[in-house]
């Protein structure tokens, strides 16, 4: 067991007007080299905070507990300098809002080449050539001219693709991509997914793909974790999780997908109720107010992740058969 990126019992607290609150609880995750690992879950479920904590980028006053290692090295206790070195080079992140990773006053070319020159020691010309190629890979037309342009001259989706190009410039060992294709239409999205898959195959790049789009997840992820209210509530092989979802929340998400071809005006199914606030989750299983299978015991304790083979789900009802074994063991 030597995962490239490994999180163990990672928890995050953030300051709120009502005092410090836990927003991410005991997340375990192991991403192998050359693996695409999907993290799914409702907006606000803690996906972004989990990844920001690895880079030391939590909002001011946020704290992280537990363990995280990259290539065997502890990253949470690493000092700022070591972390920055890691971030520019081996571990790279695409942020959900591309404007946070793009500098509005610098040309796209400058932003693409700066890191590459520093970290890879490329000459100006080499870096520019590589940057133009990168822009082509993310399907920005007329790369040469785009290098001289500023971020505001591009559409929302094009900015997102430029941010992806910047993240890939230094050939990172792992790319953490937060909703990288959410702003893109399906044909461009298909191109980006193919690019990520190619880099995985050819360069052994690992990807942590955060997305709420289960179709995107299904098309390239090998493993999946689903988060709800700050916890991983289901994880396993992507095929198992999508074909035989075990947690009622995952089942609800899959059931909410529009059925192609089912005509206009038909009411779409959705999970009743509103998402739990991770700042103030319901007692016991945070999903219980929305769950059709809930029993009294669901309100008592937080259900542990119960395993059936290597497929785990935090539900005492659907995983009842393994729940008893777990207690015995």
């Amino acid at each position: 067991m030597s995962a490239l990126l490994e999180l163990q019992g990672l928890s995050i607290r953030l300051p709120t007007p009502a005092g410090s609150r836990a927003v991410v609880h005991e997340v375990d995750l192991a991403v192998e080299a050359g693996q695409i690992y999907g993290i799914a879950g409702e907006s606000g479920s803690g996906k972004t905070m989990t990844m920001l904590s690895l880079l030391g980028l939590l909002p001011r006053g946020g704290t992280v507990h537990g363990r995280a290692s990259f290539a065997g090295r502890d990253i949470l206790s690493a000092d700022k300098k070591a972390r920055q070195a890691l971030r520019g080079r081996d571990l790279s992140m695409v942020f959900q809002d591309p404007m946070t990773s793009l500098h509005p006053m610098l040309t796209v070319g400058k932003q693409l080449t700066e890191h590459a020159r520093k970290h890879l020691g490329l000459s100006k010309g080499e870096a520019a050539a590589r940057a133009a190629q990168m822009l082509e890979d993310v399907r920005i037309p007329d790369g040469e001219a785009a290098l001289r342009a500023y971020p505001h001259e591009f559409s929302g989706g094009m900015r997102q693709r430029i941010a992806i190009a910047i993240a890939l410039m230094c050939e990172p060992q792992i790319l953490i991509a937060d909703e990288p294709t959410t702003a893109l239409d399906v044909t461009v999205q298909a191109g980006i997914l193919a690019l990520l898959d190619r880099l995985r195959r050819e360069k052994g790049m690992a990807v942590v793909l955060i997305t709420h789009d289960l179709g995107v997840m299904s098309s390239i992820a090998e493993r999946i974790s689903v988060m709800y209210a700050g916890r991983v509530i289901e994880s396993g092989d992507a095929r198992d999780v999508l074909k035989q979802p075990s947690h009622p929340y995952t089942r609800g998400l899959l059931g909410s997908l529009p059925q192609p071809g089912l005509g206009a005006g038909t009411e779409l199914r959705s999970i009743p109720g509103v998402p739990a606030s991770p700042l103030d989750p319901p007692r016991g299983c945070a999903f219980h107010p929305r769950c059709a299978l809930a029993v009294d015991a669901c309100k008592e304790g937080v259900p542990p992740l119960l395993r059936r083979g290597d497929h785990a789900a935090a539900c005492i009802v659907t995983m009842r058969d393994v729940a008893s074994e777990e207690v015995v063991a």
Binding site: R139, I140, P141, D142, A145, V186, T187, V188, Q189, A190, G191, L193, A194, D197, D213, L214, G215, V216, M217, S218, S219, I220, A221, E222, A238, R239, D240, V241, L242, K243, L254, L257, P260
Partner: peptide
């Protein structure tokens, strides 16, 4: 090009050719 959530790990079909410059 719409990806399906069927767990089959099939990449959706990307449109061939360059994205044109408007």
């Amino acid at each position: 090009a719409i990806p399906r959530a069927d767990g089959e790990r099939t990449l959706p079909v990307a449109l061939a050719g360059e994205v044109p410059d408007p």
